[in-house]
Design a protein around this nucleic acid. Sequence first.
RNA 1: GCUGGCGUAGCUCAAUCGGUAGAGCACCGGUUUUGUAAACCGGAUGUUAGGGGUUCAAGUCCCCUCGCUAGCUCCA
Length: 694
Amino acid sequence: MTHQANVRRQTQSMSESKERTTPAELLTSKGLLDAAVVAVRIGKEIVDVHTLVDADAAIEPIRVGDPGALDVIRHSTAHVMADAVQRLFPGTKVTIGPCTEDGFYYDFDRPDGAFTDADLRKIEKVMREIVKANSPFRREIVSRDEAKERFAKLGETYKVEIIEGIPEGEDISLYTHGAKGKDWTDLCAGPHVPSTGMLAAVKLTSVAGAYWRGDERNPMLQRIYGTAFHTQEALDEHLRLLEEAKKRDHRKLGKELELFMFHEWAPAMPFFYPRGAKVYNKMVGYLRDLYVDAGYEEVITPQIYDTKLYKTSGHLANYRENMYFGIPSDSLEGILEAFEAFVSKQAAGGAITSEQRKALREEFLAREILEARFAGAKPMNCPGHCLMYASRRRSYRELPWRIADFGRLHRYERGGVVHGLARVRSFSQDDAHIFCMPEQVQEEITKFNRLLYAIYRAFDFKDVHIKLATRPEKRIGTDDMWDRAEKALEAALVEAGLAFEVTPGEGAFYGPKLEFHVRDALKRSWQLGTIQVDYAMPESFELEYVGSDGAMHRPVMLHRAILGSVERFMGVYIEHCGGAFPVWIAPEQVTLLTVSEKQEAYALEAKAYLSGRGIRVITDLSSDKLGAKIRNARMMRYPYLGIIGDREAETRSISPRSHVDGELGSMTLVSFADRVLAEAVPGGQGAQQPPKTE
RNA sequence: GCUGGCGUAGCUCAAUCGGUAGAGCACCGGUUUUGUAAACCGGAUGUUAGGGGUUCAAGUCCCCUCGCUAGCUCCA
């Protein structure tokens, strides 16, 4: 989402001496101004036709349908919506209203609370009237004081706050549309379309709460989301895509295809049905195969640890809110007794208020229990792996030591953030930790990148976007460590010639990371893989190795995952392929459908043959008619259906129907099996095995 | 966690003003033996998420809890 601030942009840096005019006049003089011009481009900047610019500026008209035009249209639509809202709901204050990747929103402070869907329809109606009036957007530059005074008079306290935040020296521009007396003005950097009549296709989509300035300590505002396009057809197409996304929703497909379920007695913790478990295990199995050549060794580690572990690793200080703590049943009573003793000691016999008691409880939890008697379910594998590393003396000869772990992790996620398989409380990662010498870091990152791209290709994800997340405020380790770690990640990317974006402050508490985001078939972006350079945890666990010089050295630890959470990856992948898994990963590769019960014996024979060739095959021998069997099988999205009637039984053949290509005609069982097996490799038909990484 | 919305049969959804909880699919039994997206007949299916309240009467109105959901915040 591109949250474009609608204020605070300096219009143009230009010399005072030059003659100034508006793009509208410039275009008119060239005969280029027509009804389709929304704004103009000057260099990299987009300005509207009313903004004063240098008279000799090189301007390029942006017409309806050109790239960049939509943002202008949507932002203008947001103004019209805010106008409509204030007409319908007096007393509502405006805040900000930027455009987003596929629409716009505007946040309001409404004394009466949230808007309803019926309100949205009303607002749309008034918006259409404003559009119909086709009144021009007018721009004016005002002084800081005048702007403040005008908005203060209207009671628009948020706008006043925004003006106060605009740096000195920047223009403060206001935009007004509507007829005199019924006009509506907003503080805004623009640009805007010349006239409201250009806002042809508008739809308000949803309402939601949103905090002022995105801070949960601030008041909750009412946000209205909408979208706008230059034609009704484009809007309809957009709404169609949203419908398509709904159809592919992995939560819906998970239920329909019997892949997984949830139950309120284990909220946000998925149950995988046999079909889902097959897909899941195929994914993990594929990674295990690649690990052999990539030099990883799999380990199995405990689920629950003494809190001493998390104290050492820093999780207790930095990750406690996201952890589950269990109490061994033997300790239950003892803990309660200890708490009572603690309270009476602190209160020294006197009565205490419930406030004080609450504070004591917090202190008790933090100081006594967490360190001594609670057991924590692991939220990450890394601390356990450190214990394994430290279990004996290590030599530089065994580095890099790459240990993979598919162990289940538990993280307590706040109620509002869990979402299908994409955000759960119980999951596994394709997690591995690489313990290596500092001079091996860059090469390990490079190898990891190669492995990652090969795996994404196998799953048909082609569009990968890399982010380099740097040190957050809450962190462990020295600045020097962070400098080195951030540099190593960057160097590996530069060396590989991979483009990336830096996201400051987004790193993990123990190290900076690369995040790998992919786009799915519906153009949505998901974070999957990550690699993190960590100098801190080896320090905390005092990890060492004997170098070739005979002295002790500290290893570096790389945390890395390619699919990320296997659960989330499966959710993303389900939506990517629309539930129609390719042959290599489908729970069942072939379903044999008999035309009548007469072919049952041959169908079972064919099944045995295909099964013997290593194909996952099931049958539908029910008394349904063929049409019904096909319909059911299509809905289950099996890659291949094998029709078996009298003709096939007589010639010992099969009539396959591919999910992708439809009917294939009749062929022998042997050539059908050959075809299926040829396709049953990661990456699909004709795909090469991913290149080896070593 | 916060702000909205939602929760009725395994699934998708009805139920007018507060007045007997219903349909299709799936399921079960039977008939049918079928050639590329739904054969026919019959049957069973509910603590209307849970708890409390208002009322002669609650799926429907009110309160609480749980879950789901769109966002916000978070995402190590």
